[in-house]
Nucleic acid binder design. Structure first.
Length: 601
RNA sequence: GGACCGUUAGCUCAGCUGGAUAGAGCGCUGCCCUCCGAAGGCAGAGGCCAGAGGUUCGAAUCCUCUACGGUCCGCCA
């Protein structure tokens, strides 16, 4: 395929390539829609047809063309016309646009389009101009979204399970930010329940130990070594003050001392993974401040709180079950299966009550959308939480709950057993220290959040095509290597020079294929954001890297495909393509929170 | 008893909110490297998308039921 270089100077095409977002699929869809309107004005088809379902997307098989649209099939039914008839009329009009060089009807009524190489060449210039902002979208329209994730109990360091939630939440946050949402990353500190009392007692034991006492750790306490330092620190702070004293004297003080220490630990863990929260919200701050009462009063005002007795759970009846009167939330009204208790029979709050108050607070802070990320073992909690938010916001604020499945650890292909007791307890820090945060993050995103994930300590470090982290980084390394060599050879490779270089020299099929893949990026960002699925970014990057490597490999046989040519002008055009690829990979890795490297060791 | 998630090539998994002949990596088969761009590359075989119904121009995708696996099910968070 050879293009008349003169075309590149066609102002009509250039003006159509100005949009910095450069979402070519959206652009062409807009063109299709405008031609549909034109066709109805010309009375070829009726007026006012719904076009929501008209799509322009990459065809399944690249041999079909660069883009394909289903417009004719979508319009066939409401118009009562044959798809092919519509498609042919549409094709005729589309061909009048300088960007479209061919439009063929295929299959049941698809319209396959080929775009002028000039468009792809223009895309390269646009990418270099926009840098890593290329592909940013405004589908979020500035919607304020709060993403709550990790929210591990402040009773110890983060483990692998938390790691997945942390990576997923952070990447989702970045993705939504990239797609035009205004994002808050938030961590809910469970510092109000019984487990922090257990923590305090465990720290107290370590404190006694620091004073030279020999202590035993009974069941129901945390025996972990990580509390030794906390015990020491407590001793340094209060000396002998609490030795030999009862809980009534020290519990409050040690509880807050210990949770502070644990949160410091957790924040350091998150930092090691590259996660930075915008806000930490304390459960404790909800108690004795009237906030829980206020949230429940809100529900009561809606007639959703009552005193009652729940049915016993079927199938698995606890031995000690007996009917008890409790304060219940009528969550059935908002889609739950049973009503849920907010107050225990002894008059204290259930864990659900502060959660209601917390989400009430989030609603009141004015978010348009809430997202919670839970471990899969909290799946049973989803409906009641959604019911609560639905009720508290009068149905105005949606709550999305994303579950992250288990991580199965492997070492060199063998399952790696975890056990708290035997001390083979794998923490976030263990993982990050061994393989690095970038590798950890990327790998955690190579599976859908709701599918189980295998994590092999050895395989994630392998340098082969099997390992997506390596494969993607390797593409970047090759680009930098090309650019370094170009600089040595005295080629100017600054962005401005490259984007103004003679890109019409990029006419090889393999080169344009890479540009076509790059063109998918803005569209992919939008679909990934809409689906709340950052793993799609990781898969795309792997795919893009594959396209790049494929072009590179072809250069082995066909020297004209190599990025460095004797002719400086040609080199610049080819390097422009390579750098555009690097720009998109870097942007994608940025969303995943993975550092882009320039070379591999 | 019920709820939620899952089931796609021998294995591990994608599949862009309903589109064309369902894809990738590994493994397998066959070709290709005398450091110049091979920490590899190219090509090929391999599928009843768990099963059965339904919805429509069209289903791996949406609905119902069934089977199997995982998670969960009142005073634990």
């Amino acid at each position: 395929m050879v293009v008349d270089p003169v075309l590149w100077h066609d102002k009509r095409i250039k003006s159509l390539c100005k949009d910095p977002k450069m979402n070519l699929f959206a652009d062409i869809r807009a063109l299709v829609l405008s031609d549909i309107v034109a066709m109805s004005k010309a009375s070829i088809i009726p007026n006012g047809l719904a076009t929501n379902n008209v799509t322009v997307e990459p065809p399944r098989d690249a041999a079909h063309g660069d883009m394909s649209t289903n417009a004719a099939m979508v319009l066939a039914k409401p118009t009562g016309m044959k798809p092919r008839e519509i498609a042919e009329a549409l094709a005729e009009r589309l061909l009048k646009d300088p960007r479209i060089i061919s439009a063929e009807v295929a299959g049941p009524g698809f319209l396959n389009l080929r775009l002028s190489p000039v468009v792809w060449q223009g895309l390269i210039a646009a990418i270099l101009g926009a840098g890593t902002a290329f592909g940013r979208s405004n589908i979020g329209q500035g919607i304020k979204v709060n993403i709550e994730f990790v929210s591990a109990n402040p009773t110890g360091p983060l483990h692998v399970g938390h790691t997945r939630g942390a990576v997923f939440g952070d990447a989702l946050a970045s993705l939504l930010d990239f797609a035009g949402y205004v994002v808050t990353r938030e961590y809910y500190i469970n510092d109000g329940g019984a487990q922090v009392d257990v923590l305090a007692r465990s720290v107290y034991l370590r404190y006694l130990e620091a004073h030279g006492q020999h202590v035993a750790f009974p069941d129901g306490t945390y025996p972990g070594d990580y509390l030794i330092d906390v015990g020491e620190a407590l001793k340094a702070k209060v000396g002998k003050l609490y030795v030999g004293k009862g809980e009534d004297v020290w519990l409050n003080d040690i509880r807050s001392f210990a949770t502070d220490a644990m949160m410091k630990l957790i924040k350091a863990d998150l930092a090691a993974l590259g996660v930075k929260m915008d806000k930490f919200f304390s459960e404790k701050s909800l108690y004795n401040t009237g906030l829980i009462e206020a949230a429940l009063e809100n529900l009561r005002g809606r007639g959703l709180i009552y005193e009652g007795v729940l049915e016993p759970p079927k199938g698995k009846k606890p031995d000690d079950w007996e009917p008890r009167k409790q304060t219940l939330f009528r969550s059935i009204e908002h889609g739950d299966d049973v009503d849920r208790p907010v107050m225990k029979s002894d008059g204290s709050w259930t864990y659900f009550a502060p959660d209601i108050a917390y989400h009430y607070d989030k609603v009141q802070r004015g978010y348009d959308l809430l997202i919670d990320i839970f471990g899969a073992d909290h799946g049973g909690y989803v409906k009641r939480m959604k019911a609560a938010v639905s009720a508290l916001s009068g149905g105005k604020v949606p709550l999305e709950i994303k579950l992250t499945q288990l991580v199965k650890l492997f070492k060199n292909g063998e399952p790696f057993k975890m056990s708290k007791r035997s001390g083979t307890f794998v923490t976030l820090r263990d993982v990050v220290d061994q393989v690095g945060s970038g590798v950890t993050r990327f790998h955690m995103l190579t599976r859908k959040n709701d599918a189980q994930l295998d994590f092999d300590f050895d395989k994630v470090l392998e340098q082969s095509r099997e390992n997506p982290v390596f494969y993607v980084q390797y593409a970047l390394a090759r680009v930098s290597s090309v650019i370094d060599k170009a600089i040595e050879a005295g080629v100017l490779v600054d962005n401005k020079t490259l984007s103004e270089s003679n890109l019409s020299l990029l006419i090889n099929e393999e080169e344009l294929a890479l540009a076509v893949k790059l063109a998918e990026w803005p569209r992919l960002v939008e679909t990934a954001a809409r689906a709340n699925e950052p793993h799609r970014i990781a898969f795309y990057l792997y795919d893009l890297a594959g396209t790049f490597h494929s072009l590179w490999n072809k250069g082995n046989e066909l020297p004209e495909l190599r990025f460095l040519q004797d002719d400086l002008v040609t080199s610049q055009a080819k390097i422009a393509l390579a750098r555009a690829c690097a720009v998109v990979i870097t942007a994608g890795l940025g969303i995943l929170g993975v550092e882009a490297v320039k070379e591999l060791r």
